[in-house]
Structures are given as structure tokens and as C-alpha cells.
Design a protein around this nucleic acid. Structure first.
Lengths: 238, 238
DNA sequence: CGGTTGCTTGAGATCCATCAATAGGAGTGG
DNA sequence: CCACTCCTATTGATGGATCTCAAGCAACCG
């Protein structure tokens, strides 16, 4: 069974057996999507909170000039919206990158669960605050990091995030994004993604082949990419 | 009296007289800061939520290579942290850009007020969700907009935000950022900020002189900057 | 006044985007 | 199994956007 959501939230609060059961009970209403599909489109009025149970998805916007920016990645266990309030209409789209299993959760139900179970409320807040911290770091990345630093930083962040849900094995992890996806995520062209990946490879830091990232030198990668994991930890209790 | 906070939150929920009094009562504990000073530094353990009553401030990070990225601007009435949980330590700094008056609010007090007054809770959530939407738009700006589009988009966003707190007059508004500040905010060099401003001026769209922005052609500015205000409205009730 | 800060301009270097073409790999149908 | 197609990855060449360095200028301030 795919338990990534519970596994992730355990990092945000200590959950009892009952808490975990309550969380799993939220994930009954499940949909499956093909890769490169929209779960929700800009302008839609959402009726449920989406939870990624399996696969990779993203939040993105399209500009009038045709350019696309991926705003954030959703990995297994990630929630696509804050639990409290849904927008009147979406100002962005949610799309899949791989085959994805999504749970639709009613905001009323999740609010009720959060009210009854303080540890769940705490964990949901932790998740939200972590997402905000990652958003802030994205701004720094796009504003001030070079192309290869952006890639290296992303691989470091994914390493930490995937580790939280048990999806890191040994030297690396499955990473199903195409170079074109990486371009949309990191604000660069596909061609330049390719060349920057070659730089990282030549420096003996990381390789990306097939759908897999292999980290050859984690410390080196972190320092050359200016990766400081502080932002992923500042809301986690000691 | 500086009432920007209440004025802003009115856009997020309809507040009663009592609600507004309760909000004002939160702002008793006030500090003043000089321009270009830190209110809170990265690594600090914060004990209070900061509320900008007057002046402009920002959230920023410094990279190891000395570069600075401003992550978000705080205008009068803006809250610097979500009301629910403070981090164990700051992953970024809060700094002033002008002389700033800050209210320090204890999270316990604000949580209590939110629990007793549902409209306040709603307004605080609205504020948080709006801040997140602005953060998403920043990512799009930094990832996919050209230098002059970034500037134009910023001026459009500020026009909307300042209008919400009554700080727009006629053709423009006070805008105390230096060109160096704009560079740190928009991920570009000071020199290039200067040249891009000249482009906007030459196109008859906007001018920036002294501490003032004057919008010469709002529709033109919005369309050339790819500014779509949707993201600032999607959580506002009809 | 002299010092400081912010703005402006020029020149040259660098990074990255764009365009265009090729190559590889996976899936499909005959 | 082969031919075909599609998608992704790769490479080269060129131009444009932006950065860096350096210098001059303007406004403000004690």
C-alpha cells in the first residue's frame, strides 16, 4: 500500500496509531492520471484538495508568450493545496509528470479531522510551512544561482525530500523528469539543461541517465551548488 | 493612526467593529527600525510574529558567494510570518528598506484571537494564501520573464497591493526601493535595472524618479509585462 | 565643502537562448 | 524481425541578454 502521505507527515508531528488511521481514511477517493495530463487547470473552481499518493506531479503556469514555468514539484505524499481554504478559482494548473494516483479530499472532512486531532493539525501546518520554505528557496535559486548550481541544488533537495518518504536507495533515486521538464522547472532552455548536466557529470558530482539520478559526490555537490538544507529543517522539532 | 493592517485584512473577510478592535489591540508592542537594518537575522530563534505597520521591509537570503536575493516585500499592513507556528530558527532574514515600524505579536495571543473570532481567522488565512500566491508569481517572474517584464510586472503588482491599503494616489505611488534593491528583488544587476527602466520609460509605460513610480500607461504596462492580476484575486470572495 | 550614496553610461566578457540538425531508444504495426 | 514514428537527448553555430568592471555625475548631508 502506498503510505507516502503518512510517512511524510510523521516528520512533522508524532502521530498515534489512531492519527495515522484517520489520515489513511482521508485517502479513499482515488483517481489515476496519465503522464503529462492536467489534474486541475487554471481557472477551474476546485472542489477538493488533491493529494499525490504515487507518481510525480507539478504546479505550473503558462505565460501568454507560450513559456511555461513549473512552480513546484509534488512527490509521493505531497499535498497540492493548504487544507483550510480552497481558492475561488485556480490561478495555476496542476499537471502530472508521470502516471499519478491522486486522492481527492474534501476540505470539510480534513478540517474536521484536524480540529479533532491536534497532532494532525500540527503535521498539516508543518507540511504547509515546509512547502513555503521550499518556495522561498526556489526564488533564491531562480534569482541568483547559475544553471549548473540550479540543477545541483535541485538534486540535493530531491535527495532530502525523497529520503523522507523512503524513495532514496543507495547512491541515488528515480527521477522521472525529462530535460525539458527540468528546463521549465529551473527557468532555462532544454539545450542548456543538457549542457549543464554534462558539466556536473564532468565534475564527478552527479549523473542522470534514464530515469535515475546517481549522486557521485554528495558533499561536493552540496558545496558547489550552494545547497544549505537549513530551509528544509527550520520547522522540524528537535 | 496607522491602520494599514486592518485596512488590508478587510479585503480578506468582513470584519465587525469588535473584530477590528481586536486586531488593533494586537499591535501594542511596537518597535522602530532604521533603513537597511535587520529586524531578524537568519539563524535567530524568533519569539514573536512581526507585523509591518509603517514603511517597507523585506525577506531575504544571502548566498555564500555574497549574492543577495530579496524573496518578498513587506508593505504597510503585511505580516512577516504565518500566525500559527514560528520556526525553530529563521532560514532567512527580515530587513528594512525604509524606516519601519514593526509590531511584535505573540503567536499565542494571535492564535487565541483567531480561535474566538472566525472572521479574523478567515482574514489571516486569506492573507497567508495571498502571500503564497505572490510567491508563486515571483517564481514565474524570475524563471520566465525578461528584465523589463520583471520590472513592469513588479510595478503592476505594487499598484494593486498599495491600492488595497490606500497608498496609491492618482498616477502612481511612493516606491522607496533603490535600483540596487530592485536588482536584489528581481534577480538582476543594478546596471541592468537602470537600463531596463530606461526602456520602460522610452516606451512611455512607466517612470521612476526620486522615490516615486508614475504609471503612464497602465494597460500598456500590464500587457507588455504579461501581468495578469488573477493571482491576487483567486482567494477573495465575490 | 568633502564624503557618501545612488544613478548613469560605456566597453567588453559571459552566460544562456535560439535555431537547426543528428542520434538514440521505446513503442507500434506490418 | 523490420520499418516507421515519436520522443528525448545531444551537438554545433550564432546572436542576444545580461553581467562585470570602471568611470563620471548628481543629490544630499553633516
Amino acid at each position: 500500500m502506498s503510505d507516502f502521505f503518512v510517512q511524510k507527515l510523521r516528520h512533522g508531528a508524532s502521530l498515534s496509531e489512531d492519527d495515522e488511521r484517520a489520515l489513511r481514511a482521508l485517502c479513499m477517493n482515488v483517481d489515476k492520471f496519465d503522464p503529462q495530463n492536467d489534474v486541475t487547470m487554471e481557472g477551474d473552481k476546485p472542489k477538493s484538495i488533491k493529494l499525490v499518493l504515487e507518481g510525480w506531479a507539478c504546479r505550473y503556469k503558462l505565460l501568454e508568450n507560450g513559456k511555461r514555468q513549473i512552480i513546484s514539484l509534488f512527490l509521493p505524499g505531497d499535498m497540492c493545496e493548504p487544507y483550510m481554504t480552497l481558492p475561488q478559482f485556480m490561478d495555476h494548473s496542476l499537471g502530472t509528470l508521470t502516471p499519478v494516483t491522486v486522492a481527492r479530499v474534501s476540505p470539510e472532512v480534513i478540517k474536521a479531522v484536524a480540529r479533532e486531532r491536534p497532532q494532525i493539525e500540527k503535521a498539516l501546518w508543518w507540511d504547509l510551512l515546509l512547502a513555503m520554505a521550499m518556495g522561498r528557496e526556489s526564488i533564491v535559486t531562480l534569482g541568483r544561482r547559475s544553471a549548473s548550481e540550479r540543477l545541483g541544488h535541485l538534486f540535493c533537495e530531491l535527495h532530502v525530500r525523497l529520503d523522507k518518504v523512503g524513495l532514496v536507495d543507495g547512491l541515488g533515486y528515480e527521477m522521472p523528469l525529462t530535460q525539458s521538464n527540468l528546463g521549465d522547472l529551473l527557468g532555462m532552455s532544454t539545450v542548456h539543461v543538457n549542457r549543464s548536466l554534462q558539466e556536473l557529470r564532468a565534475a564527478g558530482l552527479v549523473t542522470m541517465h534514464g530515469r535515475r539520478v546517481t549522486i557521485l559526490n554528495l558533499e561536493g555537490l552540496r558545496s558547489t551548488s550552494l545547497f544549505d538544507p537549513t530551509y528544509l529543517q527550520s520547522y522540524t522539532q528537535a
